[in-house]
Nucleic acid binder design. Structure first.
Lengths: 329, 329
DNA sequence: TTGAAAGCGCTAACAT
DNA sequence: ATGTTAGCGCTTTCAA
């Protein structure tokens, strides 16, 4: 900037005025400055700027487990929509579900002085964030709650969605409804399992642990789990799958084995309609999840100081062919 | 930091030493400093830091049209993999294919002094970037070439992929092969159309403009385009679709109309195997595209100064059921 | 309308 | 082993 000033033969402050569109600069002076700016290819340095200004970086941090996962990229898109209206930028990092990496990522973002932070947390003790929150950095948790602290959080209605799915199967006349899910140490997996059980309890249907398989973390292991369930003396007549990876594994295995099984998947699939047997699914708006999380951050940025809030994003059951029709009684 | 120094009763520089893990600090002193750091909830300010240091922000900028699009999120993931090995962070912005927004985004990123930039550009004159490139900021273009400047670029083999698809259909005995694509103002759409035509030319098959439909930008309009093609007196017996959105529109319409038509889609679909009729597709590794783009940036960051390079990422034809079997001659 | 000087929070270079 | 000083590139405050 000082170079620009020299070339334009004005003071540094005048250049600053031009660059920031402040008034009180003679058109002729402004022209000289602009010329010098183009000549030198000058760009204002935002780091220096935010150092002097009221310390806003107009940047929001987002920590998720994987940018490549459609669920998280939908969230990122929702967050971005809000961020954009405020003329802010988004810094994203993938934690791969590793608490230590998550913590490092958060530290880096905070050191870069993001104005706010949205985190989809791995299970961990998040008390280390209390100091930063006390310093006024809005931190919002998305999809899963933080560990051992109170903070704004937005979750899916995991239990409600699973319960609605199971109740739909019950209404169709099924009584042996299986469940294949991920490890219950994962918050969403545990909640979905809870919803599954709650539905059976509410309808006084016997819960058989034999047809519940937990710990499937990818499509392959879900396929194996399904084979085991189908090999049982009394296999389930219907199945709820705990997430999209598991659903895909099950669909693949089903395509191979041609077994008849009513199926509902938690998480909708993009091409659910075009599958061999269109998938009945527990759907929700992941983008909206991102938007609402960003709105929580923005509200605090705008001076809101209320207590931590927990928001629940609803799910809906999209009934297609895979859940089948009423069982013959 | 000065507050920490005061509380720990040491000089500012000693705090800096502790924070940066520099040697020559007595363990006892270090303990006092660390205590003060925790007490005050201190975080090093990276803006101030990079201002003084050799101006590295350890940040890479990525401008794409939409974070929510699987193609771009795969790219983002690939870029992130590389960025992570260098302990850098990724700042992402979506341009929505709007050249003006793209330019603003780029300006913001450059003002924030990203160490490098990866851009999937909308068609535009990119000469405004020459000054920044001359200042040593590595800028790499991905998926589409920049306008009116020379810069490192990585593209898909769009023409080659389309050509291979058409040749596969020709080998199966088809002679009336249609094409539904996006507007040829879009680089990739134009290239794919070129590949389609090149294959027909090479095999001396007559090109009929009637069975080529351009300008489909979403699934709905692709569905309409298909209906028009099928209503023709001499409809095509096979079809190449120009991208995943178009493929989905065509699949939807095909599911409705039950028309018999050999189909190949450019862009693979995640559930291609599980569709009613598994999709033959022109596939490629979008993540690798991101990794290679990031590698180009990183190489220049490491001091490479060669001329602009253009890399081509190969595609492959994944043959499944939808392209059908050999036509009865 | 323009400019001079101070200082944001940190690190590099040089003392002690 | 620890401290002092200057200055990164900008904006703020005040003066001309």
């Amino acid at each position: 900037m000082i170079d620009v000033a020299r070339v334009a033969d004005v003071s540094l402050k005048t250049v600053s005025r031009v660059v920031n569109g402040e008034p009180s600069v003679r058109p002729e002076t402004e022209r000289r400055v602009r010329l010098a700016i183009t000549e030198l290819g000058f760009r204002r340095n935002d780091a220096a700027r935010s150092l002097r200004q009221r310390h806003r970086t107009r940047t929001l941090g987002l920590v998720i487990s994987d940018v490549g996962n459609p669920f998280y990229s939908a969230i990122a898109r929702g967050v971005e929509q809000v961020v954009r209206t405020r003329d802010m930028l988004l810094v994203t990092g993938s934690s791969d579900e590793d608490p230590e990496r998550e913590r490092n990522l958060i530290r880096e973002l905070l050191e870069r002085r993001v104005d706010g932070l949205i985190v989809s947390p791995a299970p961990a003790d998040h008390r280390y964030l209390l100091a930063d929150m006390a310093h006024g950095v809005p931190i919002v948790f998305i999809d899963r709650p933080p560990g051992r602290i109170e903070a704004d959080t937005i979750l899916l209605d995991n239990a409600g969605g699973a319960r609605a799915a199971v109740e739909h199967l019950l209404e169709l006349g099924h009584e042996r409804i299986g469940f294949i899910g991920d490890l219950p140490t994962i918050f969403t997996a545990a909640e979905r399992l809870r919803g599954y059980r709650a539905a059976l309890d509410a309808h006084r249907v016997r819960k058989d642990r034999e047809i519940v398989h937990l710990g499937s973390h990818n499509a392959e292991s879900a396929g194996r789990a399904l084979r085991e369930l189908l090999a049982l003396p009394a296999p389930p007549t219907a199945l709820l799958t705990g997430n999209n990876r598991i659903t895909i594994g099950v669909l693949t295995e089903l395509a191979r084995s041609h077994a008849a099984l009513a199926l509902i998947g938690f998480d909708d699939l993009e091409l659910a309609d075009l599958l061999g047997r269109p998938l009945t699914a527990v759907a929700y708006d992941a983008e909206e999840l991102g938007r609402r999380a960003a709105a929580l951050v923005v509200r605090r940025l705008d001076g809101h100081h209320g207590p931590a809030e927990q928001l629940i994003e609803p799910t809906s059951l999209v009934v297609r062919a895979s859940s089948g029709s009423r069982l013959r009684a």
